[in-house]
Design a protein around this nucleic acid. Structure first.
Lengths: 354, 354
DNA sequence: TTGAAAGCGCTAACAC
DNA sequence: GTGTTAGCGCTTTCAA
């Protein structure tokens, strides 16, 4: 009663091939792994005729290696991670590794679950931890034998893994100084979660930048977001309702999109009424009016680097060397979203009334 | 000479647990699968103490099932597919399936390679084929036993798989009629590859819409793009150089972004000089000036549906029923990128000179 | 060069 | 309820 008899044959095994070729399974195995075999011709034909493909599961069980690499990111729809993944992909495919791409949705619990199921299914891991993870997740600690590269974010307990990071402090600091140089002093910040590496470091960068100019961050002009669009929107709404800033720094692209939406909704004109800088380039950045000045960083290159660190641990000799920490540089891309503060806020260097 | 001795112990096996608990491996296996066991307490403790986790490879080899689902998309950075993946994820996690997300980069060869390595590693597949695939890839045909759901695109040889699609013809047609109703007649089209389902169908929809209004598509105003940003940019550039259209329909979001960039570069004002419609909403759509009128469609919901079709084949009873073809509706989201054509192009209903 | 045999870790009969 | 046994498909000693 099966629809058609063709296509229903269970996949051919190495034994089937061996039988057909009149040799032992061992010989077929050797042939497949490129060793010299007397009847290579015959074996090859048997393989072809049966459409034989080795069972990866069995192979992995035997060898202990899966040739899979797990890639765990908090949000695959964030263009930043999308670009990183492209970088990872581009340098993994040649190496005959498969990528298991997974999304944690910034959820530590989900991440833990994911890692648990991933261990055993992958030979190595590239992990951009969810923001809520202060320490390495249990699943990771338990299985130290899998090489791990941390991406974009670290754990509080630190330097036990290879990592690929960017100079968050420097980037945010440079952006802030750009604003102070324009004459801004009342600068608002929409930061990311301070328990995440980029959230904390970018915040520090802003503080640093303010200090450089002899100012201090007004606690009343600080908002903490969640690195997501809605967080940025709400934070900006809140700032606009109560704040008196002339400029704002937003800690990532998604929140920046939300913040811009809030500005648009309220009718705040950028840069006339408010100067706007953010960390990370915005998707479709050139179409947005005005083009947003932002802290740019390598994205694809971060992925490529992460992958090459991993490959060194896997194939190369660097298996047991000390963890490496790579920090990549940022660059301020000046566009059209910043100007000098409106005159009304008083000449920066002559404190008038207060 | 190993750095530390701790953490180097090979992962505990079921036999280790059995030994420690003083029972047989089979008993441990039964305990783990929820059967009643006399010394459950003891076994449980042994599991805990050893930090035992079953080897998924061995388990899969035995059972023949991996509890992995492959998701293959042409471009993970396309927000459309990002949203679809979110939908897929949301309905898969509860079901204890892992997602292996893969990117083909619209490359048929890469896709074929991917599918080949995926077979055996997954129990099922959700596939949005690369545009170049006229027929089902060999890897798929060879392994009919894996349930497949086609997403967004079909193969030329058709209805052998479940599929989740949208009404491309209807959506494009509606958008076109919206333009003709506004009085446009010289409507340009930037289509996707005509050998892909959405490319062809959306093109047909435009032709249909033109016919409805008693017009015909001017071959001189048709460009074929590749569904990517650059393709849209180049096509628009080309149109602007030679065309005399008053409106343009762009077949997807990425090309629309490119086309808009081209317009901006050349200084064409939308909608005053050119009305603009596209298929698929644009990322950050609300921030773009003007907001672009587009054909919206379910995205997350498409993912959810695809996953539920798959789960029915996997767990449910529908294993052998006929393939189902689900076509979801689109909706025209009217925004600010269209207006009546400039007067100069002549009154639509009074053919003046010709 | 090749075949026989053992075993990777787990589960499912089958007997007790 | 439990232990024994066999085997999933493959690779890899070990002899020949």
């Amino acid at each position: 009663m099966s629809p058609t008899s063709r296509g229903e044959a269970p996949a051919a095994t190495i034994t089937d091939v061996a039988r057909r070729a009149g040799v032992s399974p061992a010989t077929v195995s050797r042939f497949l792994s490129g060793q010299n075999v007397r009847n290579a011709e015959v074996v090859w034909r048997a393989v072809e005729e049966l459409g034989y493909a080795p069972n990866r599961l069995a192979r992995s069980l035997k060898s202990g290696r899966t040739r899979n690499i797990g890639v765990v990111v908090p949000d695959i729809t964030n263009p930043f991670f999308g670009a990183v993944v492209k970088g990872i992909e581009s340098s993994s495919s040649d190496q005959a590794y498969n990528l298991l791409l997974c999304n944690t949705d910034e959820d530590a619990e989900r991440q833990d679950h994911l890692l648990k199921t991933l261990v055993g299914a992958v030979d190595a891991l590239i992990l951009a931890p969810a923001i809520e993870s202060p320490d390495a997740p249990e699943a990771l600690v338990h299985h130290r034998r899998v090489p791990v590269v941390l991406l974009d974010r670290e754990f509080g307990d630190g330097e036990r893994y290879d990592s690929v990071l960017v100079d968050n402090v420097g980037g945010a600091q440079q952006a802030t100084r750009y604003l102070t140089d324009l004459g801004h002093r009342d600068i608002a910040v929409i930061s990311g979660p301070l328990n995440s590496t980029p959230g904390r470091q970018r915040h520090e960068g802003v503080e640093q930048g303010m200090r450089d100019a002899g100012h201090a961050l007004d606690p009343n002009l600080v908002e903490i977001g969640d690195f997501r669009e809605t967080g940025g929107y709400l934070a900006m709404k809140s700032l606009l309702a109560r704040g008196s800033m002339t400029a704002v720094f937003v800690a990532n692209n998604l929140m920046a999109a939300g913040a811009l939406r809030a500005c648009k909704e309220v009718g705040v004109r950028i840069p006339e009424q408010l100067s706007f800088v953010c960390f990370d380039d915005l998707e479709l950045g050139e179409l947005i009016e005005p083009a947003i000045t932002s802290v740019s960083r390598p994205t694809v290159a971060q992925g490529v680097l992460a992958m090459s660190l991993l490959l060194e641990r896997l194939d190369g000799g660097a298996a047991d060397s000390a963890p490496r920490r790579c920090v990549m540089e940022t660059r301020l891309s000046v566009r059209d979203s910043c100007s000098r503060p409106p005159e009304s806020s008083g000449p920066p260097d002559h404190p008038s009334t207060t």
